[in-house]
Simulated scan of single mutants.
Amino acid sequence: MQNLDLLPSLLSKINENQRALEAAIMELTNWVDRQGSNQVAANVRGALATLDLNEEFIKMSLAVMMSSD
């Protein structure tokens, strides 16, 4: 297997890790929100929104890379 053949799998695993970190950060954000730090929670949610905005592009790009075998 060539090194370039590993790239789609590597990017897929990195994306999975990113989504797992997002979920963990959201859990902490919800806890912070319940503790009364609403502005901090809102700021974190705003930053995490970028992950959601980019998710579809990442999925489509990975699908194209994996189908070009």
Rank of each mutant, 00 (worst) to 15 (best):
N43M: 00
L62I: 08
Q18R: 15
E22M: 07
A42I: 03
A49R: 08
E27L: 11
S68Q: 08
G46A: 12
M65N: 02
A20N: 14
E27M: 14
K59Q: 10
V32N: 03
V32C: 05
D33Q: 07
V64G: 00
I14D: 06
W31P: 03
D5K: 00
I58P: 02
M66I: 08
N43W: 02
L21S: 12
F57T: 10
L62N: 00
Q35K: 13
E16F: 10
M66K: 13
Q35G: 03
S67E: 01
L4N: 11
L7W: 12
L7T: 02
A20F: 05
L11Y: 08
A20S: 14
L21G: 10
M26A: 01
L62D: 04
A49H: 14
T29W: 01
W31F: 14
D69L: 11
A47Q: 11
E55M: 11
N43K: 13
M26R: 02
S12V: 03
I14W: 12
L62R: 04
K13S: 15
S68E: 08
E22R: 07
E56P: 03
S9Q: 14
E22Q: 10
Q39I: 13
A24L: 09
L28R: 01
M65D: 12
R34N: 10
M1K: 04
A20Q: 14
S12I: 06
N15A: 15
E55Q: 14
E55R: 06
S68H: 12
G46M: 01
L10E: 15
N38C: 02
L11I: 02
T50H: 10
L6V: 05
L62V: 06
L21D: 08
D5I: 03
T50F: 01
L51Q: 09
E22V: 07
I14P: 03
A63P: 01
S9T: 11
V40R: 05
A47T: 11
